[in-house]
Design a protein around this nucleic acid. Sequence first.
RNA 1: CGAGGUGUAGCUCAGUUGGGAGAGCGCUAGACUGGGGGUCUAGAGGACGUUGGAUCGAGACCAACCACUUCGACCA
Length: 491
Amino acid sequence: MAKDFLKREENYSKWYNDIVLKAGLAENSAVRGCMVIKPYGYAIWEKMQAALDKMFKDTGHSNAYFPLFIPKSFLSKEADHVEGFAKECAVVTHYRLKNSDNGDGIIVDENAKLEEELIVRPTSETIIWDTYRKWVQSYRDLPILVNQWANVVRWEMRTRLFLRTAEFLWQEGHTAHATKEEAIEETEKMLEVYTEFAEKFMATPVIKGLKSENERFAGAIETYCIEALMQDGKALQAGTSHFLGQNFAKAFDVKFSNKEGKEEYVWASSWGVSTRLVGALIMAHSDDNGLVLPPKLAPIQVAIIPIYKSDEEYKITCEKAKEIKKELESKNISVKLDDRDTHKPGWKFNEYEFKGVPVRIAVGMRDIKNKTVEVARRDTLEKTSYQEADIANKIEHLLEAIQDNLYQKALTFREDNTTKVDSWDKFKEVLDNKGGFILAHWDGTAETEEKIKQETKATIRCIPLNSIAEKGKCVYSGNPSEKRVIFARAY
RNA sequence: CGAGGUGUAGCUCAGUUGGGAGAGCGCUAGACUGGGGGUCUAGAGGACGUUGGAUCGAGACCAACCACUUCGACCA
């Protein structure tokens, strides 16, 4: 299976694509630009969902569901918002089909034209704020802290599995608040949730920051983001959280009476992460032997493979394997015992390695005799013989060690690939030869950002939140700058 | 939306001047095997992307269309 598998340095994007296909995560579908997420890939998304959903609930949010279709007129109520999304919307114009007159198929019934065309949601701010108008009258109705898990459609020209597809799955939180301060606090709180998720579950370090005006969400006052660095030196936006001010409240006339009985517009935030995170996860940790998954998001944490020759040995090794499985499961470790007789042990070793299973345990007659098991860890590819006694505790600690090691490795990689740059020549040189994050001074103007983008394809990924004030000169224009921002080529 | 490329078995592809549709992998059955994708034998599997055209004759030539893909512009 992986014999003809490419190395990362040969062709990074083909390497990525092959992992997605051959590890059984997803595949292209009959519909252009849309993907089929296969069970193993969906299982990773479900682990992500479960972790995030708990974090949302723990911060006081509730789930709800809003329609897939948005009346066309809604979209145009917020000027920046419609401008940002208009070019990539799927539109429903009719609601019925009929047999064609010449009998060779089915056609749109032109008599079934919709009075008002419907947009397939590219995001749900408009339909949600139209709804919130009905929910809010008094400050007592606030805040509204709602999240929805949904699919959205953005009609992309060029697509890549998980990283950019015409339809994708995500969550979008939409909150309404009585004050500006509270809405900003919410926006920042959710960025913190995303950061914690990325670092603790995905084992991927991220940089928190603000988007420049060019990169800001259409309709937001301020867009916060977390940016991760992939192994090919390109940046990937792993999550965004927007402070929407009163833009949508004004567009949809959502007002409330405050304690003094005065009418005010509601303050808003929205925030989201998508199945793109699965792509980020793949690119952050995987190696030339295939997928590498952090234990906290791996659908299978431990695979157990019995090694046997005869039917009798099959029974004995499977019996031992089942014992071990049960012990591990008592520690809430997810275990797959692969007792299929239809595949050879060697084949299974490669299979689980390619699929990124963090720990593999082999049990053979030799092990049983010695009261040991052979343990192989995916992150380092090390094989060690463990005494069978107290195996569950040992594996539990091993999984923690793997999770930690992946994070440290990714952090070291990011540090090694973050470069401070003070001249335009150096900027271009680092970008072309090394890649990664570039910390450089910027004069704060959209014009300079646009020129840098045109000349180098690098964009401002974010203005880091924790950056230290440092006077300097813009790397491009030479104009004065107050602090460094992060440039990179991005996904 | 612009420029190129590719459509032949489940997958990757070969197919010479236009004349009998092939290989490797995978799949099925059996035997030997079994601590890193094993070997051998036998077998199944095809509207050659679609439509039209020139030709005695097209997988191959011509045209249109469709799909996929790479690179650009756009984007999470």
